[in-house]
Design a protein around this nucleic acid. Sequence first.
DNA 1: TTCCATACTTACAAAAAGGTTAGTACTATA
DNA 2: TATAGTACTAACCTTTTTGTAAGTATGGAA
Lengths: 112, 112
Amino acid sequence: MENKELKVTARCPIRTTSDLLSGKWKLLILYQLAPKALRPSQLKRLIPDISEKMLNQELKTLCDSGLVVRYNYGEVPPKVHYELSAIGYKTMPIIAEMQSFAMAYEEEIKTN
Amino acid sequence: MENKELKVTARCPIRTTSDLLSGKWKLLILYQLAPKALRPSQLKRLIPDISEKMLNQELKTLCDSGLVVRYNYGEVPPKVHYELSAIGYKTMPIIAEMQSFAMAYEEEIKTN
DNA sequence: TTCCATACTTACAAAAAGGTTAGTACTATA
DNA sequence: TATAGTACTAACCTTTTTGTAAGTATGGAA
């Protein structure tokens, strides 16, 4: 007698991914880095609402989790950029599905 | 001269979707409801870590946003169930991508 | 020499999210 | 008659997340 019901929580794939991408800003940062590497000041301009603190904090956790790579030019005044890692790029299909869901959802609520 | 850079934040598709699915539990609830409608007590058994309060609260916001539909049998003692709406089902591709991302990510960190 | 820009960091405060406990009202079962 | 199960709800508290403001150190331009 098998239990075909799938209990979820602790360490399931959905949880793993939402932990990595949770919060208000991580997906937006990943999305902006997808076309090309960007310096922090460029990111800030593309995501005007983010505070400097959150930008640094989220970049750090994205680097720590391996989705983003920091490149230091070693110049003075400081120059760095951030780019997606190979695994970071693999978040793009999630973002694409989220975008197409949003379109469908907006249609839905417009039509009621 | 066009601005090809895509500023994000306020009302962009990524934000719309993450607002709808944000939090620790919504995706897990949607995932459990996908195969079949469930009563709250069944959901609670499938997601053991969730508190009753969060379950009710999240079911309510999922109903309010139209992703889930509540069906009341009108019996005493109370009997209800929750099921995905048509638009609720359209979150499944997002979840599928999140699952396959998690697999790739786990592989990645195992290999270093 | 004052100002701005670079990339951060820190202390503190506010807001949001999540959890605990208890309580409602009803029925069926032991 | 006590207990457990149904589906909620509300008060309260803790934790997490996010934001604000200021400060570090450097160099170049006005």
